[in-house]
Design a protein around this nucleic acid. Sequence first.
DNA 1: CTGAAAGCGCTTACAG
DNA 2: CTGAAAGCGCTTACAG
Lengths: 333, 333
Amino acid sequence: MAAVARHAGVSSMTVSNVLNNKPSVLPATREAVLKAIAELDYRPNTAARALASASNYRIGLFHRDSDSALLSAMLVGALNASARLGVQLNIKVYDQKSPLDSVRDFLSTSPDGLLLPPPLCERVSAAGLPEEYDVPMVALAAGRELGNMHCVRIDDEQAAYETTGILLRAGHRRIGFVRIPSLAGESRFAGYARALADQGLALDEALVWNARPTFDAGLRLAEEILPGKRAITAMFAGNDDMAAAFVNVALRTNLRVPEDISVVGFDDTPIAVKIWPALTTVRQPLGEIAEVATRHLVAQLQARDKETKAAPGGTTFVDYQIIERNSVAPPSS
Amino acid sequence: MAAVARHAGVSSMTVSNVLNNKPSVLPATREAVLKAIAELDYRPNTAARALASASNYRIGLFHRDSDSALLSAMLVGALNASARLGVQLNIKVYDQKSPLDSVRDFLSTSPDGLLLPPPLCERVSAAGLPEEYDVPMVALAAGRELGNMHCVRIDDEQAAYETTGILLRAGHRRIGFVRIPSLAGESRFAGYARALADQGLALDEALVWNARPTFDAGLRLAEEILPGKRAITAMFAGNDDMAAAFVNVALRTNLRVPEDISVVGFDDTPIAVKIWPALTTVRQPLGEIAEVATRHLVAQLQARDKETKAAPGGTTFVDYQIIERNSVAPPSS
DNA sequence: CTGAAAGCGCTTACAG
DNA sequence: CTGAAAGCGCTTACAG
């Protein structure tokens, strides 16, 4: 940095000011510094920044070992943001048997904040950990607003509403729905119900099944639903894994997808394009969610340090995207 | 750290020595420090360590956006190791169209070292970048020894040999093989050929197909091979994605897996358990590979700083594991 | 709008 | 075997 300062004929403080986008720097000075940075190909030392910035925050990102499909995007997003902000990110794997204990253990090491993906965020929120510990927590993709912690997510209800709309517009009237036990599941069910209501269709409880959001559960459910006379012409599965299970069972029982039955998923995980037909599904930008969540958490930390008390709860929305592939077609008559 | 030192009645230097396992510390002193650390629940500041240690290395880990299945494990492994070693890890996404340019771009920012997963490591090695730039590079899971950079990997040849053995022991004699265009593909093919030779079986070139290791390529190949009279009773696919494609096409063409045809994959990516039947496959411990590679790279950097010249090339092996699930059965007569 | 000084929490030679 | 001093590369108040 000293070299850049010399090159630009300013002090290293000014270089720092430019780097951190301080508004006080004169445009001309800023440009000179930027030019010096480019010419010397200078890259700030993350460690030094982290150390020097009063912040020096340490935040934890929890994840289960199992769901790598969702994990890598989140990791990359959180990593990017934390590197830029100079905060120390601790990646923690939690035990499925006692997730709360894992969180408490980590909390006992006095971290500055927590990043909680589902389903952990729901558990932590319900257990009242945000009130018990004075450590800011941010939920990722929680499905709906959480009273005691901020949440960064897509609008699950609206996404499910629009996705159901695609099925309705294709001509389907008997659309099955898998309701997964989570806040996201509830929000999506609400969106599905609203879409039906908008078309003047009654919600038929017989077409709604409750199941855990795993491939295995999807397999069992599909084996129960698909054979014989089917009540549905389309299935809105709880997520991509379940949708993949439906496609799999359909193929085994000589049903064509999408000709005989349409299937849509949720999440746009890698499996969506690793089966045939590729799944029509909703993309949640997990990387962006993690990035935004990390920034929000750090902002919360800084605000707190300045005694600007922030309100708990609240939501930041991130855009989703409906990806139409090959698993939806009009119902065969 | 000062608090720990005070608590233990020593200087902070001694605390540092304990933390870094310096042999000079007396057992009694060490214990006192360790006790103080535990009582105060002290955790060293990574940023400060990184900054203070003369090292202060910055290394890059490249990856494609596409293969998230392999990515997350590698990320976590490299992250763990780099946090522990206090080195700065830059995660870089490279462009598939011009991977070498991405590497050169990054190299121009003067990093201290590179971590290269396949297939990038092969390209970089073949292009002679290790000779061109004086930056240590370590290849992850490269499939076989690379002359100009160190490689951390499983023994692909032996893994394929053993996996083919499982098929042979189940009674299969006409075993198909998908040869993917990579060093790993070559090594695995060699293992397959050796297993056949061991049983006195001739290698039948008609049962060996070349294809890129993607789900789509697997789909096309399976659609060509499976219908009609089949030459094979089992297929050793190039990886899990391809194996999944074979299972998918088999189901669509009314073939039962594994009763009518056995299928095995390679990698043990998440898709292996997200299809039915779940795949018998070879697990590559990517997390461990990344961790070992990061440590090796840093060791190389430190050795170089001390002018202890290290030999280029060389290999560190990591154990693989054959996971037997439900996609293999004896051939139907 | 810009800069001189102090300090973030460690580690590295170097004494003793 | 242990410690006092300097310094890693930045940023944060504080002057001017």
